[in-house]
Simulated scan of single mutants.
Amino acid sequence: MTRFAVLLLGVLFLGGAAFAQDSQPAQSLKQTPSACTAGSQSVRVCSNGFQSCTDVCAARALSANADVAGCATACCNQFNVCLQMRNCGAARINCN
């Protein structure tokens, strides 16, 4: 009887260990989407900042007393810095 109990416990233990290995989730082969695609959050954040900046430039341009020299270039450069900070260096626009 004792041998049977030891054998039964051994089978249950080893069987449980084998089951635990098989119960691990399979890794997906699907590629992780880039954080820098056109619709990604990183690009949207930078684009929203760029839009806000250009809106300010447009509003300043309406005032004859406002100094708007280089405003658009500054906004463009800030946009590119934003993309670079979010590791989207390849997604740049030409500010010239």
Rank of each mutant, 00 (worst) to 15 (best):
S28H: 06
S28L: 09
S28N: 10
L29K: 15
L29I: 10
L29P: 09
L29S: 02
K30N: 02
K30V: 11
K30C: 04
K30G: 02
Q31R: 04
T32H: 01
T32C: 00
T32P: 00
T32G: 00
T32R: 00
P33K: 03
P33S: 07
P33E: 09
S34T: 09
S34G: 08
A35F: 13
C36E: 01
T37Y: 13
T37R: 04
T37I: 07
T37C: 03
T37N: 07
A38Q: 13
A38Y: 13
A38N: 14
G39C: 05
G39I: 12
S40H: 01
S40K: 01
Q41S: 06
S42D: 04
V43R: 01
V43N: 05
V43F: 02
R44I: 15
R44Y: 08
R44S: 15
V45N: 07
V45A: 09
C46D: 00
C46P: 00
S47C: 14
S47Y: 04
S47P: 03
N48C: 05
Q51A: 14
S52I: 08
S52E: 11
C53I: 10
C53S: 09
C53R: 05
T54R: 03
D55L: 03
V56N: 09
V56M: 08
V56G: 09
C57V: 06
A58H: 07
A58D: 04
A58S: 13
A58L: 05
A59E: 15
A59N: 15
A59L: 14
A59P: 09
R60E: 15
R60L: 15
R60P: 06
R60H: 10
R60S: 15
A61L: 07
A61F: 02
A61K: 13
A61R: 08
L62G: 13
L62K: 12
L62Y: 05
S63K: 08
S63Y: 05
S63E: 06
S63P: 03
S63I: 01
S63N: 12
A64G: 15
N65R: 07
N65M: 13
N65T: 05
N65S: 08
A66K: 11
A66Y: 06
A66V: 13
D67R: 01
D67I: 03
A69C: 02
A69D: 09
A69Q: 12
G70N: 12
C71N: 05
C71T: 06
T73A: 14
T73N: 11
T73W: 06
A74G: 01
A74W: 00
C75A: 11
C76Q: 11
C76Y: 06
C76P: 06
C76M: 15
N77I: 11
N77A: 13
N77Q: 13
N77P: 02
N77E: 10
Q78S: 14
Q78Y: 02
Q78W: 04
Q78A: 14
Q78F: 03
N80A: 12
V81A: 09
V81M: 10
V81S: 08
C82S: 09
C82D: 04
C82L: 11
L83M: 14
L83T: 03
L83C: 07
